[in-house]
Write a protein that binds this DNA or RNA. Structure first.
Lengths: 244, 244
DNA sequence: ACCTGAACACCGTTCAAGT
DNA sequence: ACCTGAACACCGTTCAAGT
């Protein structure tokens, strides 16, 4: 009840206080560096990595930062903001490779790194569905497009090529990360039976491994597909296309 | 207060009741066809189409079906089930084209219809991130793979081709539907300014139209990309690839 | 300027109970 | 077999108030 918990509130004396030196914490207790958008994003990515997108909550995020939930709204307008920022953040991990004389190597390498970044954060593909216009994404897209331009593409051809490659990675990462979420969700035993049934119903698909969870040579399939798309999308490839 | 609202509760008489004939509704009032997984899915798709994924709620879904929220759980295990089912459902709209002698036309046509189905339901790309193993998706994937097999592909080559095309549509639909959600969210005036800034920062990207919201010739860009991927992925294309 | 606390209007899901 | 109602343990977000 009393304002001061240290002593019974019998009689007020100036000597009651032991002085600054014995006070456990400075009165302005700073538990941690001040909140900032950057710290929020970092904590969000950590939470997403460990617990998945469904577990990311403003309240959990706040408690991880030792802050009241409503404090976040000083730095961020909405939960979707946090998600957009977290998504763009992980593309910072996609190192932009040093430009080599070979535009094709440059483009391929960027795409490959793009893919591994998404697979490192399996919640990321699930966040696609909102425009990705963050600085990290745009910088990498710009690098990709510049590499493709060096191949001689321009105008609509360049646009087509950039989109084709970007769409390919995004799709590939999405379908692959999908599997990752499912067996972490311990569909293990029960899902196995369901898969067996599916395989019997779709023999063609199953023979080609389309119904199998991801395995070791997924990235070789990805690399070969990437190669094929690069071939098809390249200046000569576009010009030799069957259709208009 | 009284159990019977028709008459003041003065004295109970057997003649108070006018008989079956005058009762407005049969005592077992069946307000609508009985609930079923199918009806739930249909209502879910409708709600998703009109209000978007964020507005899909078990409670809203139930009230649309004139049923208590908890009734849904008799037919469905979880909300995610509803989403998975709704997503697979819309791929039923992707008519499987009649097989023509031209495997390439068959494959291309399926992919194009796949894309429009997703664009008709812009919430769909946002649901990717969980494995799509519904019957509608699998039937279409099987058709696609069969068409590609007719081109002479088999084994890993076939797997690569199927994945490449599927990834391409998924990615394309996702990025394009993303824009659709943003301007329906009335970012109109405010987002416009932000876009102008972005265009100045990324002149290369912006010159190629990568920063513009979807416009009329998006589907020609898509079609040309599809053509390019088909070229690259085709048996001859794969064999002539630069790399291993 | 930055953060807290209480409050509002919701959520998904479980479970006993009704018919 | 199928549905309701109450209840539980949460949500995102607003806003006045504190420092």
């Amino acid at each position: 009840m009393a304002a001061n918990d240290f002593e019974p509130d019998d009689h007020a004396s100036p000597r009651r206080d032991a002085g600054v030196w014995l006070r456990a914490t400075p009165s302005r207790k700073r538990r941690s560096p001040p909140l900032s958008t950057e710290r929020i994003i970092a904590a969000a990515v950590e939470l997403l990595d460990t617990d998945g997108a469904a577990q990311l909550t403003m309240r959990r995020l706040a408690s991880q930062l030792q802050v009241s939930a409503t404090a976040l709204y000083w730095h961020v307008q909405t939960k979707d903001d946090v998600l957009d920022l977290a998504l763009d953040h992980i593309f910072g991990d996609v190192a932009i490779p040093p430009e080599t004389p070979d535009w094709r190597d440059d483009a391929a390498e960027l795409i490959r790194r793009w893919r591994t970044a998404m697979l490192d954060h399996p919640w990321a593909p699930g966040l696609i569905g909102r425009p990705m216009l963050g600085p990290n994404v745009l910088a990498r897209t710009e690098f990709l497009q510049e590499a493709l331009a060096r191949s001689g593409l321009s105008g609509v051809d360049l646009e087509v090529a950039t989109h084709a490659l970007a769409n390919y990675v995004i799709g590939a990462a999405a379908t692959q990360a999908a599997w990752r979420t499912v067996d972490s969700a311990r569909g293990h035993d029960h899902a196995r039976d369901g898969l067996e049934q599916l395989k019997q119903q779709y023999p063609t698909l199953s023979a080609s491994g389309h119904l199998d969870p991801p395995h070791r040579d997924d990235s070789v399939v990805f690399d070969r597909g990437l190669d094929a798309v690069l071939n098809g999308v390249t200046a000569t490839g576009l010009r030799s296309g069957r259709r208009s």
